[in-house]
Amino acid sequence: MMNLPLIKGFKPYGQQDGLKNSDPVILLLEEYESVKLCDYEMHNHISACEIMGVSRPTFTRIYASARQKIATALAEGRQITIEGGRVTFDKDWYLCQDCKCYFSNPELDNEIEECPLCKSKNISYLGQSKLDGKNIDTDKELCVCPLCGYSIPHLQGKPCKQEICPDCKVPLKRNNLL
């Protein structure tokens, strides 16, 4: 499950004379999503496959295929078209936290407030939850000084050891590694 990419594809420029835009490489939406999760949002493969709702081996296959296609486009100077694939979009689905069922909203203008099955109010809208989940995760993680305990929030993708404790002048460590 995911949200649509901002663009439909990429075009090369500055080709040698006579070489026109050739057949595009077709990057499937799930392949785009796998690269976005792993290389842009810096998730590891385990959390990325959970976000996409596929098994670990399937995720690896999708990701490998995505990299192969992007590399082909770079090496052969081909266009990339992002389309197709087997995907559903987060913005269409809700999840009930009590009975664990997913449901869609047939009337897009009205927001749903309770689970159609168990009438629980404990539901979450998947279009937002990915971002919320990311914030919670990063809130929990801290870069901590191993000597004095000074801490700052951990930035995803930035190694803690690049941060230096202002008092002790030593590299910080991740709180869950101390």
């Binding site: 664990k100 449901f103 869609s104």
Partner: peptide, 8 residues
Amino acid sequence: KIQMIVIK
């Protein structure tokens, strides 16, 4: 306008 409910 039919609502889908997915039971896992």
